[in-house]
Simulated scan of single mutants.
Amino acid sequence: MIPSAFPHWARAEALGASMQEFASFQDEPPQMRSGTVGKSGFLRLDFEHRSGKTILANLERRVPYMVQRALHCDEQLPGLAYVFLITTTGCLLQGDRLALDINLHPRAQAHLTSQSATKIHAMDANYAAQSQTIALADDAYLEFLPEPVIPHRNARFISDTQISVAPSATLLLSEVIQPGRKHHHPDECFGATVLSVSTAAARPDGISLFAEKLVIEPRRYAMRQTGVMGSFDVLANVILCTPKDKAERIHERVGADVNLAEGAAFGACRLPNDAGLIFKVLGRETAQVKAKVREFWSVVRQEITGAALPPPYLWR
């Protein structure tokens, strides 16, 4: 766990230096050193509930991160702040260090997504790192549903997400990971060198709830074996932190299935310490995985807020 007192992007810099799976990738890129200006993005978003709606009360940023403004475009939840996360580079390169801090004050409601998929380009030196902290106060509600992560051949990426969630708050956090540009070149499918994705959650008083770490090293471990990806290509990992009674109602509605003919499998299980649920989806194509995540999102939205999802936008 990286101390939150670290200055912004330095938290992301410390990630790779502290993880064994990145010990052999400490060399510096010949083009531009890691963490320099333009490669050390920082974004802090503070949301507050005021006069019946949520506003983006505080915004701090450093390129390549950018946010334009909070929109209130959801007719079912008019007070919900809708924010697009933008990176002006459009991709992650070797030596990039990104830090994202999201804070929701009591009763704030927000939906965060990205402007496009996160493309992690090929690397021959160093790695890209991302540090995220998410804090939800009493009765806050956050949907954080970015577009998929696409690791290109030889990509090296480490991500760490630290969550602080009040007992009455709800966080829906989704991550969709594609195998790469599988229709671009045969070696692109599961061609990344290493992906390391960690998530941990605790109460505001520091009591730990759960921790999960996913390490993908296709060159060391076969991805097509049973118990890993098998015949599937795309993985969605969805974490729902919410009060126990709400989590039980959602769990009863979700179910589980493995359908090899259609190339999809999904299911939800309970997180420890009554923290909520974790929902996982496997599929052969991204569209079917995102559709199943949307179904879960719809159930969560209905049970937590009583509102329905709006129709998908045309560009989704």
Rank of each mutant, 00 (worst) to 15 (best):
S34W: 10
Y221D: 13
T113N: 14
L92M: 08
N126H: 13
L260E: 05
N154D: 07
H121G: 03
V165Q: 07
A110R: 02
E147Y: 15
T193V: 08
S114H: 15
S298R: 00
A264G: 10
R69V: 13
N259G: 03
A264I: 14
H121S: 07
I216N: 01
V63F: 00
T87L: 05
E21I: 06
T161C: 14
A23V: 09
K39L: 05
Q26L: 14
S18K: 05
L100K: 08
A17N: 07
S34Q: 12
M1Y: 08
V63W: 00
Q94Y: 01
N103F: 10
I239L: 06
E175A: 10
Q178N: 15
R33I: 13
D205H: 07
T161D: 12
A117Q: 13
S4T: 15
R69T: 13
A247E: 02
F210H: 04
V300P: 04
G267D: 10
P243M: 00
R61L: 04
H185E: 09
Q132E: 12
C189K: 06
F279H: 11
A110W: 01
V254S: 11
S164P: 10
E21T: 13
A57W: 07
A307Y: 06
S298Q: 08
P64T: 09
F266C: 15
R203G: 05
N273E: 05
N126Y: 12
M19H: 15
H72V: 04
L100R: 11
S198F: 08
R270V: 12
G276F: 02
D205Y: 02
T286G: 03
Q302M: 05
T87Y: 00
L271V: 14
E212Y: 11
D257T: 14
H152M: 15
K53Q: 14
S196R: 15
T36E: 09
A268P: 13
L173N: 14
V254E: 10
Q302D: 09
G283C: 04
T89W: 05
P146K: 01
T113V: 14
H183E: 11
Y65F: 11
F190Y: 04
A261P: 08
Q68C: 02
E217G: 03
P3V: 04
A122K: 07
F279C: 03
R301G: 06
K246I: 12
E48H: 10
L80H: 00
S51F: 11
P218V: 01
R97T: 04
L195M: 11
A17T: 04
R69I: 13
R62W: 14
A222C: 10
T87W: 00
R253I: 13
A135R: 15
P310F: 01
G35F: 02
P146F: 01
A110H: 02
Q76F: 05
A201C: 03
R50K: 08
K246A: 07
R220Y: 11
C91Q: 03
F266I: 08
H183F: 06
I55N: 14
Q302W: 03
H72A: 06
